[in-house]
Nucleic acid binder design. Structure first.
Lengths: 209, 209
DNA sequence: AAGACAAGACAGATCGTTCTTGTTTTTTTG
DNA sequence: CAAAAAAACAAGAACGATCTGTCTTGTCTT
């Protein structure tokens, strides 16, 4: 019952998740089903048959669109990453104010994300945690995703004339990862605010050019 | 070759890992082999047969000591947690100085941990990331482990007369988790120092009773 | 005599993958 | 616009491999 085929739903509450999107064709049906199962029950633990049952598609259709399970995993990670970044940076673009306030807004967005009942942690953190050694493709996908965030953070650090732009971005990224993991483990969205307070203190002490 | 049976090694370089200990009997052989494979290649991805091959033991021996794979996972997590905490808190007990310095020493220990070539992240973070939904036993084991750290942090916060003891401990824990994940993903131990600098700033601004 | 262990056959289920057959949908073309 | 060609898709059988777990037989150590 829990993993039954998704019923029609015109209201998109989880803009950050590809798995919550309305699939338009068989390929998307497979990807949204796979995304949900991978992220909630793990990649290795999710078999092809479970994905097909949830997607309501045929086995040949999956292997027509994806050469292997590994390729499906890669496609899901890429789609999840892109959807999440569109949501995240899209919302950040709405924030008015100087760079420090934009950085702090990051943690408000994290709290929104954590508060979603469907929150399952960061797919990339989870994937690297599951595969660790081997599967360099997964690590690379996670790296690409993280670079997007670091690039944005560096831009903010430059705008606020931080002395060490890279180190400032790294520091915020540590708070970012820490908040995600703590919120996932404790099922407690308020870790985003804890991280925000730390960030406020850090940014107020930044050395400036 | 990579996962061959471990050769004799009298020097214990990785005191933090149960998988690096010298097994004394068949049960410990199984547990150290399982620990190594679980932590490096994932729990679901590691089959019983691979564990037995690495341990050099028989299948009946495994099922004589453990009722199921799930129970073996639980036993490995518990052993890994205890070994790690013995190393961590044992080393912390050597640190002289007031509470803030003891807290900062946490991040020096993290850097040591991250610098070990065999570092694979935190087994509990990895386990929760892999299973997420379902498997409440794993989540509970992770919670117990985290409570040990939080209790220690609260004691330090009390000693330095922090106004909000719980929040102070939570903040350091966020930096703790963030450093682990960042170091694991970037294969870069220096994230421990990044987290330490943030902690220094945070502790210097703490509200005191 | 008893328990710990090795070695491995065996079972039933599930894994990822390929293949076949037929239907529906889309695209191209006359 | 209609006919024809092509692609997408459903349903599911079949494959060999691997999965967790059981069971048997025999050796070794206490």
């Amino acid at each position: 019952m829990e993993d039954a085929p998704q019923e029609f739903c015109s209201l998109q509450t989880s803009d950050w998740s590809f798995a919550a999107k309305e699939p338009q064709n068989a390929r998307e049906k497979i990807m949204t089903a796979a995304s949900h199962l991978f992220c909630n029950h793990g990649f290795s633990a999710t078999g092809i048959d479970k994905i097909l049952t949830r997607a309501g598609t045929a086995k040949a259709t999956l292997y027509h669109h994806f050469a292997s399970k590994e390729e499906l995993i890669a496609a899901v990670l890429e789609a999840e990453g892109e959807t999440w970044r569109n949501w995240f940076f899209g919302r950040l673009a709405e924030v008015k104010g100087p760079a420090p306030e934009r950085i702090l807004a990051v943690f408000d967005l994290l709290e929104e994300w954590f508060s979603d009942p469907g929150f399952y942690g960061c797919p990339f953190i989870n994937a690297v945690a599951e595969f660790d050694t081997g599967n360099e493709a997964v690590r690379q996908a996670a790296d690409v995703h993280k670079q997007h965030l670091l690039t944005w953070l560096k831009a903010q650090a430059m705008e606020m004339k931080a002395k060490d732009v890279t180190e400032t971005a790294r520091a915020i990224a540590v708070l970012f990862d820490g908040a995600i993991v703590a919120a996932q483990h404790g099922r407690d969205p308020s870790f985003a605010r804890t991280a925000r307070v730390i960030a406020e203190g850090y940014l107020s002490q930044i050395e400036v050019r």
